[in-house]
Write a protein that binds this DNA or RNA. Structure first.
Lengths: 258, 258
DNA sequence: TAGTGGTCTAGACCACGGT
DNA sequence: CCGTGGTCTAGACCACTAC
């Protein structure tokens, strides 16, 4: 508290955080390196431990470092991204027998696993009802919840919504949907996917999502609201994808109409 | 500190945060409502002010509430989203004389403004160099930085990279690029946009981004790395878009190849 | 002036990880 | 066992807002 008025712009916690950020960005502290302990930082800067702790918190919020209880605070390692391309809906991919997720996991040398925690008849959320063109006031949809893992690490949560009156009594009410997955069954019901729409947004996870995705603080999620349209322009399937943003990149390639 | 061992699973700060989250989700506290003050919460729960403050911090991190210095803590209002469609690169839109950004701002009844803080020759970042197929070791690109505002609120930061040897001495080195913008000039240079690739990710903002975008804590950014390809498949323009995620939705519509 | 959040202090005890 | 982060206490002063 000795500086002149002009040198006192920043509170100590910001100053400590700024110093650490610079040390990380300059390469002095590299991925995986351990930061000085909170108590050591406090002593170095002549501050209380809570002040050093606040500095660490700022960096954590920015996704730069991650704390490990009992061990220390470490510079976060950049993660290889799952690259989910716009061709992930292509029929060609179905014919390989590998889903896009399995393909991508394989590319990274990881083992893909998919769980189906629930398949239930429900009243749809309003955003889903609008897009699937069903009533939001009745139990008009079937909700299939899927969890995707790579090497037992959860990477995405998917909620797929289908029309109850169409899928009632079919394999689409089972967790094992047979050859070519749900799109194979939907094709038998007369829906050939000819167009898709993806609406993309990003936000911080809910506590529930943070738990199931095992998200560290400072990691946002990517939410994709996906709608499939058939040959008649009818939306026949809507899915909400929640991806952990530290492991996911989306890729869209498209022609530009003259 | 009176609960039995079995009822003590959660620390007080989480308990307070959980109670508040439930009150918000149940509708008891609505968008724009003021939460109890930190001191009031501390008293209600028989805790120190720092503990109540920690609870508020958790909610802020989750993007649920936002603090206003001197006024209080308020439930965050959902923002209307800028919907940036995949047709934003279409030539048709250029012919209207309105850029997609201006169109979208108009749709929301807001005034669009675009600043060009800098146009400089530079050595490209490696991810840009790869995609534009230029050398990362020379000053091989021109970097045009743009800031987009809606009603004087900043909503996106765009860095466009072009080949120095192509645009040297052209209008593309000026802030006013003439009719149809940069794509008009690039077409005169023989590059007709026929295909685009967008690579999308989400992350927490850097402090610099948080400042220029005036981001509140708990708001991530959407980053889009955009590449334009011409009639010969040559990448002739690469841009990095940084959008504030609380105001931006991306929309992609695409046909599915049989 | 009173009330609010923003920051800081100087302690304390707990839970976790490794020796 | 010791060192680490996780949480809490009971104060304090500052900065901002509104009256």
């Amino acid at each position: 508290m000795t500086g002149s008025a002009s040198s006192m712009q920043q509170p100590p916690s910001r100053r400590i955080a700024g110093d650490l950020r610079r040390r990380i960005e300059s390469g002095e502290l590299r991925s995986g390196d351990k930061l000085p302990s909170e108590r050591a930082l406090a002593e170095q800067y002549g501050a209380a431990r809570n002040t050093a702790r606040e500095a660490i918190r700022l960096l954590t919020e920015q996704g730069l470092v991650t704390a490990k209880h009992g061990k220390g605070v470490f510079v976060r390692e950049p993660q290889k991204l799952f690259r989910l391309g716009s061709d992930r809906y292509s029929v060609r991919n179905r014919e390989t027998g590998l889903t896009p997720f399995r393909l991508e996991a394989e590319r990274q040398g990881k083992v893909a696993r998919i769980e189906v925690p629930s398949i239930t008849r429900e009243r749809p959320p309003t955003d889903i009802a609008e897009r699937l063109q069903v009533s939001p006031d009745e139990e008009s949809v079937v909700h299939r919840e899927n969890h995707y893992f790579a090497d037992d690490e959860p990477v995405q949560i998917v909620s797929t919504y289908l029309r109850w009156n169409e899928v009632q009594g079919t394999l689409l009410m089972q967790s094992r949907t047979g050859k070519d997955g749900i799109y194979g069954r939907l094709e038998e019901l007369g829906h050939t996917m000819t167009r898709v729409r993806d609406e993309i947004s990003a936000r911080m996870p809910t506590p529930a999502e943070a738990t199931t995705l095992k998200l560290l603080p400072g990691v946002p999620v990517l939410e994709v609201l996906h709608t499939s349209f058939d040959q008649d322009g009818v939306p026949f399937e809507v899915s909400r994808y929640v991806h952990r943003a530290d492991r996911t990149g989306l890729l869209y390639e498209l022609p530009v109409e003259g």
